[in-house]
């Protein structure tokens, strides 16, 4: 257990050091543009999995949290011009509050009712933002990036590194939850909510906790997107594609282990980047949909499940 932790934090430190080194060595902008998107999807998938994977509540509202994160940053930037770190922290706080409110409203519903309710919340919030003139309304808003901070010599590189830090944070939180009593409680209520209650699990409180953490991470992941694109509009900030991507990446990677969403997001994110460049963005959404359906039908436990199966087969072969 302890040794596992050392490996994990060592790996995380190595990952961040690598990311930082990349920003200092590579001059070309494109890798950062592409990698930023992949990192962003890792955060979203990991965050989705905390509620959707561990607790089994299929959240279609990833785009709602993402969009609110974007617009929290837009509003703060326009109103006060505070630095990026404050925008992200504020977005996380707003996301936590929103997760709490939405959770209270929807987490008593089960299965499909919860999922539909989260879509409903997404559209309602999007409509509200569309009607909010101060942040640009339906036509969107242009944003001028402020000067970049050292040691970065370019804003996109900085955004890339910031998102890398968020990946480590999200994965660390997800890993902690999985290995703690919270994770065991969520797993129990995913299996059987009534049996979990009757075994002492405070199901509503645990679901709310998961929803708050998941929401905070999703909002935080969205906050830098405005500066990344230098533009924000409701239709793209609340695009349902974020919801289906986060869900697909988690389920394809597998939700039984924290590494599942990470694997899924890297696999799909890289594929999408390649496809968008070489063929078209329609094809990459198609691939996402087809992979989701294929995995859900043929490999219900995702890639993590496949790996486990192969391992146990091998162990049986040896024993």
């Amino acid at each position: 257990m302890k040794r596992n932790g050392m490996y994990f934090w060592g790996g995380a430190a190595l990952f961040l050091a690598g990311a930082l080194l990349m920003t200092q060595v590579i001059g070309n902008q494109y890798p950062f543009f592409a990698c930023y998107v992949i990192l962003q999807f890792i955060v979203l998938a990991v965050a989705w999995s905390i509620l959707g994977g561990y607790a089994g509540y299929v959240n279609f509202g990833t785009s709602a949290f993402f969009g609110v994160g974007v617009y929290t940053a837009v509003f703060l930037f326009k109103a006060t011009g505070v630095p990026l770190a404050v925008q992200i922290a504020a977005a996380a706080a707003v996301g936590a509050l929103m997760g709490f409110a939405l959770g209270l409203l929807t987490l008593r519903m089960q299965g499909i009712f919860f999922s539909i309710a989260t879509i409903a919340a997404t559209i309602i919030i999007e409509t509200a933002i569309t009607n909010w003139r101060y942040v640009g309304g339906a036509s969107g808003i242009q944003l001028q990036r402020p000067a970049v901070m050292a040691p970065f010599d370019n804003y996109v590189e900085m955004l890339f590194f910031v998102q890398a830090v968020m990946v480590v944070l999200a994965v660390a939180i997800s890993r902690y939850i999985q290995n703690s009593w919270i994770g065991r409680g969520l797993q129990a209520l995913k299996d059987d909510e009534l049996a979990a209650e009757c075994t002492g699990v405070p199901t509503l409180r645990l679901k709310l906790t998961a929803c708050v953490i998941s929401g905070a991470l999703m909002c935080a992941a969205g906050a830098p997107a405005a500066m990344y694109l230098q533009y924000a509009d409701p239709a793209s900030a609340f695009n349902l594609n974020y919801s289906v991507s986060a869900l697909a990446m988690s389920l394809i990677g597998g939700t039984a282990h924290w590494a599942g969403p990470v694997i899924g997001a890297i696999l799909l994110g890289v594929t999408q980047q390649l496809l968008t460049v070489t063929i078209s963005s329609e094809v990459n959404v198609l691939v996402l949909g087809v992979m989701l359906v294929l995995f859900v039908v043929a490999a219900p436990e995702g890639i993590v499940g496949l790996i486990r199966k192969v391992r146990s087969k091998r162990n049986e072969g040896e024993g």
Binding site: G52, G56, V58, F60, G111, I112, S115, V244, L247, A248, L251, E282, V285, L286, L288, G289, V290, L292, V293, V296, V297, P300
Partner: peptide, 20 residues
């Protein structure tokens, strides 16, 4: 566990139809 994956299944189908 038909719940989670059943919902994801139809969500995926909807997306495929949209893109096609």
């Amino acid at each position: 566990d038909a719940g989670v994956r059943g919902i994801a299944f139809f969500f995926g189908i909807a997306f495929i139809i949209e893109v096609l």
